[in-house]
Write a protein that binds this DNA or RNA. Structure first.
Lengths: 338, 338
DNA sequence: AAAATATATGTTTGCGCAAACATAAGTCAA
DNA sequence: TTGACTTATGTTTGCGCAAACATATATTTT
C-alpha cells in the first residue's frame, strides 16, 4: 500500500524528476542544465550534473522535441556508401554537423529514386531540422513532400538544373567541356567513353561529346556499366575496348577508379600511356597520387561541398532567400596520361 | 470568437487529428494505418491514406516514441568514413537495418575514444533500440553508460578481448599468425612492418611478430604512420624502408592500401616482386583485383560482419544470453607478391 | 441458434519534457 | 532608498501520439 503513492526508488529509466529529486531542485532546472540554456548557478549546475551521473540519467530528446522542434537531427541521403565520392562528402557533412551540435541520420538509396522517396518520408517522421539529398533528380512525390512540409533542403553534387532548394556542387557541364577542350588541344580525335548509369556523369558526357564533335572529333565507342564502377570494372572494359578494331586514341572515364583500372590494364599489357592510349578520369581522388603514372583528371571539392551544405543547414537564416545554387570550382589536373 | 473553439483549417503542421477529421475516423485509427498495425478495413485504409496525402501529413515519431519505446533508431559509431573497411561494414549495416525497418544514426569518432563517449551519450538521448560500436576498446565512462542504460550493444571488427556485450568480427591474433606462417613457409626471414595507430592492427602485429620470432625470423624495421593509411602513404614508407641499409625480404602492411602503395613504388622503381621484395596486405579489398599484380592478403568478411551485427540488433531476443563473440572466418589469399 | 472467435473501430489516458509565465533575490544607477 | 534591470529558480500546461481498455459488428464453430 505504501509503495503505491510514494516510490522510494527512482523510475526506470530515470527521468528529469528523479534527477531533480536527488539534486533538490525542480525538473525545469534539470532541463536547463541538460540543454545548457537559461540561468543556472554554479552550485546547482554541479549538483544536477552529479545527480544525473549518479543515477545514470540520459537526456531524452524524444520527449522534449515534441512540444516544439529545434531538433538537432539532419537527414542525409546518398546513393551509395561504396563510392568514395559520397563518403568524402559525408565526411564533410559529418564533421560540420558535429561542430554545430547536429546529428546526421542516414539513408542509402542504391541509386533508386523511389527508394529515395521512401527514405526521405521515413526520415521526415523524425522532424529533422534539415535534409541533404544527392543530386537534383527526384520523384514528383518527393518534391511534393518537401514543399508541403517545408523542410529545409540542400541538394548536393550538382548545380545544372532546377534545384528544389539550395544546391551545392559543381557544374557537370563545365567539367565535361573542360576535359574535352584539354583533349582536343592535345590533338586527340578518336575517343571512347566508359561510365555507369549515373545522371551526373550523363550530363558531363553530353557536354563532353558536344564539345568534341564541334571540334571535329568523334566518340567511336562507349561502355555503360551497370555494375559497381570499380578499378576492376575499368580494367575489364578497357581491355574490351582495346581488343576490338577501331582503337580509340583516348578514353574518357566517368570516374577515377575506372581510369585507374584502365591504367592497370595498360601496365599489365605493356601498353604505352599516352602514346598507345591516353586516359582521363574524373574526381581527383587522393589514391591517384600513389599510382606509378599520374592520371589526368578533374579535381572536385567533395569534402568542401559537404561542409558548405552542412553549414547552410545549420544556419537558422531565412530559408527562402537562400534558395540558390552554390557552384564550386573544379580544376583540371594534367597528369602523364594525356 | 467562433474560431477559438472550432478551427476550420488544419493545424500546421497537420496532426493525426486533422487526418482523422478528413477521413472521418478517429485519431487512433489513423495511428493504426500509419504504423500498419492492428485491424483496419480496406475502405478506411484507403480513405486515411488519401486524407494524409491530401493535407501533407507526415508521421511524427517523436511524439509516439515518447510513451513507450520500440524506437527504430540504431546508433552506429565508426572511427572514420575515409576507410573503406568501415564503409563496407556500414553498407552491410545500412542494408540490413533497412530490411528490418530500422534507421541508422551515425557518429564518427576520428579514432578518439573520448569523442566516442560523447557521441554515444548524445545518441542515447534518442533512445535508440541498439548501438553498434567499432572495436572493443572504450572509455570507462562509456562502459558505465552502456551498463546503466542497458542499451543493446554490438561491438564489431574484433573478437579478441573482453566484449562489453556481443561482438562480431575476426580474431586479429589468428590473422597475424596465419600470415606469419605463410611467409615463414615461403622462406622469408627478415621482415619490415608498416602500419598505423589502430588497435586491431596492433593485436595482429603482436601475434605476427611472436610467431615470426618463434620461427627464427626477425622484424628488422617498422614504420608506424600517424597519417591516413592511404596508397600514397604506403608508397612513401615503402620507398623509405627500401632506401636504407638492411633491406627486408618481405614487408607486412596493416592494410591493402598501404600494400598497394608499396607495389606501386616497386613498379615505378623497377623492383621485381616477390624476388627483390615480397609484400603482404590485409583486408582483401576488391580493388586489389584490378592491380597488375595480385597482392597476398587476408580476406576479411566486412560486409557480412555489418549484416550480422545489424541482424542481432534487429532481433528482439533476450539480450542477456546473447552476449558472446561471433567470430568470422578469415581467408589467406595467396597472390603473386609472396 | 448459441457460443466462441476474428475483425474493426472508438475512448481515455499519460508518456517526459520545454515553452510560457510566474516569482524572488541580488545588483546597479540615479 | 527607490526603481530598473539581471540573475536564478519554480509552476503550469500541452505537445502528438500509442498503450490499454472498451465496444461493436462480422464470421466461424459447435
Amino acid at each position: 500500500m505504501q509503495d503505491k503513492n510514494k516510490k522510494n526508488q527512482y523510475s526506470n529509466p530515470p527521468t528529469m524528476h528523479d534527477v531533480a529529486d536527488v539534486a533538490g531542485v525542480s525538473q525545469m532546472t534539470v532541463s536547463r542544465v541538460m540543454r545548457g540554456t537559461g540561468y543556472v548557478s554554479d552550485d546547482v549546475l554541479k549538483r544536477v550534473e552529479d545527480a544525473a551521473r549518479s543515477i545514470g540519467y540520459v537526456h531524452n530528446r524524444l520527449a522534449g522535441g515534441m512540444s516544439k522542434y529545434d531538433n538537432p537531427l539532419v537527414g542525409v541521403v546518398v546513393p551509395s556508401l561504396q563510392n568514395r565520392v559520397f563518403t568524402e562528402v559525408l565526411s564533410g557533412i559529418s564533421d560540420t554537423l558535429n561542430k554545430n551540435n547536429l546529428r546526421p541520420v542516414f539513408g542509402v538509396t542504391e541509386y533508386s529514386l523511389e527508394r529515395e522517396e521512401e527514405i526521405v518520408f521515413d526520415l521526415l517522421s523524425w522532424r529533422p531540422r534539415g535534409l541533404i539529398l544527392a543530386g537534383l533528380e527526384h520523384t514528383d512525390g518527393l518534391r511534393r513532400i518537401i514543399e508541403q512540409t517545408g523542410v529545409k533542403t540542400a541538394e548536393i553534387m550538382d548545380v545544372d538544373g532546377s534545384a528544389l532548394a539550395a544546391s551545392f556542387g559543381i557544374s557537370q557541364k563545365a567539367a565535361g567541356e573542360q576535359m574535352a577542350m584539354h583533349l582536343i588541344a592535345k590533338g586527340y580525335k578518336n575517343f571512347a567513353y566508359i561510365a555507369g548509369l549515373d545522371e551526373r556523369a550523363k550530363k558531363r558526357f553530353n557536354a563532353f561529346k558536344t564539345c568534341i564533335e564541334e571540334h571535329g572529333g568523334t566518340i567511336s565507342q562507349t561502355r555503360i556499366s551497370k555494375k559497381t564502377l570499380s578499378m576492376k570494372e575499368g580494367r575489364v572494359l578497357t581491355a574490351d575496348i582495346l581488343s576490338g578494331a577501331n582503337k580509340p586514341e583516348a578514353i574518357y572515364y566517368s570516374n577515377d577508379d575506372l581510369a585507374a583500372g584502365g591504367l592497370m590494364h595498360c601496365i599489365a599489357d605493356g601498353l604505352k600511356v599516352p602514346d598507345d592510349i591516353a586516359l582521363a578520369g574524373f574526381n581527383g581522388l587522393n589514391f591517384l597520387e600513389a599510382l606509378p603514372v599520374q592520371i589526368t583528371t578533374t579535381k572536385t571539392p567533395r569534402y568542401d561541398i559537404g561542409v558548405e551544405a552542412a553549414n547552410w543547414i545549420s544556419n537558422k537564416s531565412s530559408e527562402k532567400e537562400e534558395r540558390r545554387a552554390h557552384q564550386f570550382d573544379i580544376e583540371l589536373i594534367e597528369g602523364d596520361t594525356t
